[in-house]
């Protein structure tokens, strides 16, 4: 499966191995994973809400754009929802291509779009109570470079 939305943790090593094995003709694999920051010990839990149905469609669309735009032999996205503790993996992307530049660029593109065009919302629960994570202006601006 090239796009997965799930609450359970994933094994990044196993995912990358399986992805690399099915990416025929690749000479480069780029991976990125996002973790829950502990915010200097003040964060207890992060909870991620999403929009079932739209989330899967949005991720598939973002992935398709990357496949059309760069010369890739494969691309995958896993994104979790639900409660997570500091240090846990939230999501990962992997891209594969014959030469590394396409895989690097496509991975950055996927990350920029996931940040502000995939329907996820993060809420932090910590020492200072609970609060929704605000979207950053620079995340919106980052889309401009593509």
């Amino acid at each position: 499966m090239t796009v997965r939305v799930q609450s359970e943790p994933f094994d990044m090593g196993a995912e990358v191995e399986a992805f690399s094995a099915t990416s025929k003709g690749a000479g480069a694999v780029v991976t990125f994973s996002g973790l829950v920051r502990d915010e200097e010990g003040t964060l207890d839990t992060m909870e991620i809400e999403h929009y079932p149905g739209m989330t899967e469609k949005a991720l598939e669309e973002i992935r398709t754009q990357a496949m059309d735009r760069w010369s890739l032999t494969g691309a995958m996205i896993i994104h979790r929802h639900g409660p997570m503790r500091p240090g846990e993996q939230i999501m990962m992307v992997a891209t594969a291509s014959r030469h590394r530049s396409d895989a690097f660029a496509a991975a950055e593109f996927l990350m920029d779009y996931l940040k502000s065009r995939a329907p996820f919302w993060k809420k932090e629960f910590g020492r200072d109570g609970e609060s929704w994570v605000a979207a950053k202006d620079e995340d919106e601006k980052a889309l401009g470079r593509w």
Partner: peptide, 29 residues
Amino acid sequence: VAVDQELTEMDAPLANVREVAFFPPMTGG
């Protein structure tokens, strides 16, 4: 706003629409 699960703008038409969702700016990744 998303109309039938596609991100759109506030001036989007509602003819034959089944689902409209409102939410704050997304914070994925």
